[in-house]
Design a protein around this nucleic acid. Sequence first.
DNA 1: GCTGGACCTGACGCCGATGTCAAGGCCTAC
DNA 2: GTAGGCCTTGACATCGGCGTCAGGTCCAGC
Lengths: 130, 130
Amino acid sequence: MRIGELAERTGTSSRSLRYYEQQGLLATRRTANGYRDYDESDLRLVHQIRELLAIGFGLEETRPFVECLRAGHASGDVCPASIAVYRRKLAEVEECIDRLTSVRDHLRDQLDRHEAAAEESTCRSRHGRG
Amino acid sequence: MRIGELAERTGTSSRSLRYYEQQGLLATRRTANGYRDYDESDLRLVHQIRELLAIGFGLEETRPFVECLRAGHASGDVCPASIAVYRRKLAEVEECIDRLTSVRDHLRDQLDRHEAAAEESTCRSRHGRG
DNA sequence: GCTGGACCTGACGCCGATGTCAAGGCCTAC
DNA sequence: GTAGGCCTTGACATCGGCGTCAGGTCCAGC
């Protein structure tokens, strides 16, 4: 299949596919006229990339998964290198969640504090002291 | 005080302070020789900016806080516009946490799954079938 | 008067994934 | 043969918050 079809079937753009190729993630064959030519294995490969990107992986982090698929494995995540990336990413995500959680708590505190102040001011005005 | 001192006292760089000024967040006076001249209110203002940036706000989102301080309020977050940004940010952060949490769960599942497979394979090999 | 440090403006670089434009080649249908 | 749709490469643009360099100014101390 040609690049347009692959793009459509993977929910991405031709531009991105060329970029993945440029990054060495997609080894592309060419037809006689110079058009890129893809098959079902490329489809799976790009699907894998897109799924990982969608959950926040960087393109570079998808490489082990891609290579795992290329090595003939049915799934991109059965290879040690992929597992290692999973672990690393899990740690990153957990740390990020922790940070965001404390930010969230901080924001809630600020809002609560302000709400309390507004409440009190309403109260004062209701009692003719504002 | 001059820009170098302000930068040091706020834990940032001269470059950043010039950038904030360029974005209209910092209204800077000049001494006769053209040097930027700051006072304690600028210090508080930059502190406010840095704190918000540190917890993930964009520079643009600090603007209401800055204007609130400029309007003479003791704190940058007592104005309605600042509160609104707090609310918006809280929603954003909560959504982000939700997304990351599901990513985390997904990653854990993958790792568990793989660990189980490894376990089983170890088991098989222990029994002479790997 | 000279050195050196802090300051000035202006401008380019970075990161990552992708959009977008330009200028052209290929192929199909009419 | 020509219109138009898909393809090609190459290159610049985007976003944000700076880092960093270049080339020049200002001032304090010696």
